[in-house]
Design a protein around this nucleic acid. Structure first.
Lengths: 209, 209
DNA sequence: GTCTATACCAGGATAGAC
DNA sequence: GTCTATCCTGGTATAGAC
C-alpha cells in the first residue's frame, strides 16, 4: 500500500475522532494526513469510500491487537475488563469511537453502511468465540444464542461509548454496574449442586416452551 | 409557542431522521418544516440550538407518551417489549433514532452534548423507576445499582438502534436473544426456597467483599 | 503520483424590505 | 414575524501542470 494511502487512512481516523462524522470532510482529513486535499479523490474516489476503507483497516488492526487479550478471557467480567482496557489504552484511536461515528453516518449512505457492517462483524465474530468458551460450562448454556448475544454485546458497547461522550461519569457508573451484574452470573454458575440442579431444570422447562 | 417554532422543531426531527446528523442543515430543516431558512436563525440563533431544542421537546413528549406503558411493566422481558413496541409504533419519529444521531453529533459541540445529556436523562430516570419496581422482589436486589443499570440499559438501546441501521436482521436477532436472557433472570427469581436461600447467601458474600 | 488552481455548490449567517 | 437577497466559508470534485 502506498505511503499516501496510508497517510490518508490514518488522517481519516484522526479526523473522525476529532471532528466526528458530521464534521469530517476531504479537507479536514487531508489536513490531518498532511497531504493535499485532491489526493482523497485520486486514491479513494470519494470521502465516503475513504471512510469505509479507513474503518475496515482500523477495525481489522484493532481486533488483531486485542485478540490475545480476548483469548485469555474466561468470564464475562473479564470480557468487560478487556473492553474497558481497550478504551483507556487506546484513547487516541479507540476503534469503538470510530465505529460509533460511522454507524451514525451510515444512516444516509448504503455503501458506507455495508462496510461498517462488515467491520463491526469482525468484533462480533471475535466476541462470539469468547462467549462460546465462557458459556461452555454455564448451566444457562442451552438458553443463550451466542451469535445474538455477541451482537447485543457489541451494540451495547457502542451505545456506551456514545453515552460516555455526553456523560463520562455516568458511563463509568454504568460500566461499574455491569461489572457487578457480571458477578451475578458467576454466582449462578457457582451455585451448589442442589441449587444448580433446580436451576437447570427450570431453564430446561423454559427453553422447551 | 409560536406556530413557526413548532414547525421548525418538527422539521428538525424529520430532517435528522431522513438525512442524519451529518446531513442536517438549516436549509434541509427549513425545507422539511415548509418555512424560510432564515427563520432558523431568527428563532433559535443557530442550527445546533434548534437541534437541541427539538431533541428536548421530542424526548419529553416521547417519554410522556410511553409512561403509561412503562408503568405497567413488571418484568425485564416486558421492559424490552415496550422498547420494541416504541420502535415499531413510532417508526417515523422514533425518539431513540434521534438521540443516537445527536449523541454522535455531540462529540464536537459541548452545548449540544449538554442538551442531549439532559434529554437522555429523562429516559434514564423513567427506566430507573421501572427497574426499582421490577427488582424489588428479586434476590439479586442488593447487588444491583438501579441508576447505573438504567444508564446501561438506555445506552445499550441506543447502540442497538444504530446497529439496526446497518443490519436489521442482526438487530432483531440480538433483541430476540436479550428476550431469552430476560427469561433467565425470571428463572433465578423463580427458584424454589432452598435454591433461593443458597443464591441469596452467595450474593451476600459477593456484595460484601 | 502529487500539487496547484479552479469550477461549482451547499451551508451558516446577516441585512434590510415588507 | 417573515421573506428576499446576499456574503462568505468551506465542501466536492476535476483539469492540468509538474
Amino acid at each position: 500500500m502506498s505511503d499516501t494511502r496510508r497517510k490518508l487512512i490514518d488522517g481519516a481516523i484522526e479526523a473522525i475522532r476529532t471532528v466526528g462524522i458530521s464534521g469530517v470532510s476531504a479537507r479536514s482529513i487531508a489536513a490531518a494526513a498532511g497531504v493535499n486535499q485532491a489526493l482523497v479523490f485520486y486514491h479513494f474516489g470519494s470521502v465516503h469510500e475513504l471512510l469505509g476503507a479507513a474503518c475496515m483497516t482500523h477495525t481489522k488492526a484493532s481486533v488483531e491487537l486485542f485478540q490475545p487479550a480476548l483469548d485469555k478471557v474466561t468470564t464475562l467480567k473479564q470480557l468487560l475488563a478487556v473492553g474497558r482496557d481497550m478504551h483507556t489504552q487506546q484513547s487516541q484511536t479507540f476503534n469503538v469511537t470510530i465505529l460509533a461515528q460511522l454507524l451514525a453516518g451510515s444512516r444516509t449512505d448504503a455503501g458506507l453502511a455495508e462496510t461498517t457492517r462488515a467491520a463491526l462483524q469482525l468484533w462480533i465474530d471475535a466476541i462470539e468465540q469468547v462467549l462460546i468458551r465462557v458459556l461452555a460450562t454455564s448451566p444457562a448454556k442451552d438458553l443463550v444464542d451466542t451469535k445474538g448475544l455477541a451482537s447485543a454485546v457489541s451494540a451495547a458497547f457502542i451505545g456506551l461509548e456514545l453515552y460516555e461522550g455526553i456523560d463520562p461519569a455516568g458511563a463509568v457508573h454504568a460500566l461499574d454496574t455491569l461489572d457487578q451484574l457480571a458477578v451475578l452470573v458467576e454466582v449462578v454458575d457457582d451455585l451448589g449442586p442442589i441449587a444448580r440442579r433446580a436451576f437447570r431444570a427450570k431453564v430446561k422447562r423454559v427453553a422447551d416452551r
